[in-house]
């Protein structure tokens, strides 16, 4: 599999080098721009899978850069990086056309998982009504689940959790990605919310036997196996 091209727009040399290294080790091809204007030029000219954009940039700040790209119909998914600051920043980032948001300092595994989640994301207009992975079959309209032909009863939030895992099948999703996207919790809870809910979901998925579909990636998060024989 060829390396996926990523554009990193970040003026902090130290952060840029660390990010570049981490992404390259994860089979991404990283191009780096140190200021906003160069970043804008590169983002316009080439096809990238994901843009990783710092909020504060010389030349042109990250928010305006992405706003400008969206105005020019460049739909490349964008992940904002920011120093910890305002509680409204995430909202502003999404309003400007960003797709995800990560506060510095962050763990590199978190960044890699989020970039991978954004890469090759299905286009919004043709979202499937059915999801399949690892012997699972999700009907998004009926909100029903089957595993190898057996119907599985899930609570609404359990379905949402499984839907997120299945739509990222084969890729690592981190705890904070799950907290944000499944439970709308945008901070670090003090209890084992993810673990407890995950164990309920696993128990229900495995009620009729079969291999474990959801792998725990230590220190990072979880991964739903893409095909039943992969486990």
């Amino acid at each position: 599999m060829s390396d996926l091209p990523i554009l990193l727009i970040e003026d902090d040399r130290f952060v840029a080098e660390s990010v570049q290294q981490a992404l390259m080790q994860s089979e991404f091809l990283v191009q780096h721009a140190a200021d906003g204007l160069e970043g804008l030029r590169l983002a316009r000219s080439s096809q990238y899978q994901v843009l990783v954009v710092d909020r504060m940039l010389p030349g042109l700040d990250g928010l305006r850069l992405v706003k400008q790209l969206r105005a020019e119909d460049v739909t490349t998914p964008a992940l904002f990086l920011t120093t910890m600051s305002g509680i409204d920043d995430r909202v502003h980032g999404l309003e400007a056309g960003g797709d995800d948001y990560l506060v510095k300092p962050f763990a590199m595994v978190e960044l890699v998982a989020r970039v991978r989640a954004l890469a090759r994301r299905p286009a919004a207009q043709n979202r499937p009504t059915q999801l399949r992975a690892g012997g699972l079959q999700l009907d998004l309209l009926q909100r029903s689940v089957q595993r190898d032909g057996h119907a599985i009863e899930l609570l609404p939030l359990e379905f949402k959790l499984l839907e997120y895992l299945v739509s990222h099948a084969g890729r690592v999703v981190t705890r904070s990605m799950l907290l944000e996207n499944v439970w709308n919790i945008h901070f670090d809870p003090q209890t084992s919310v993810v673990e407890s809910n995950m164990s309920r979901l696993r128990a229900k998925l495995n009620a009729h036997g079969g291999a474990e579909l959801i792998q725990t990636i230590r220190g990072t998060g979880y991964r739903l196996v893409a095909s039943s024989d992969a486990a």
Partner: peptide
């Protein structure tokens, strides 16, 4: 309600 459903497994585990 969502909060309750989210934390029910947590409470059970503890």
């Amino acid at each position: 309600d969502r909060l309750y459903e989210t934390y029910l497994p947590v409470a059970e585990d503890s």
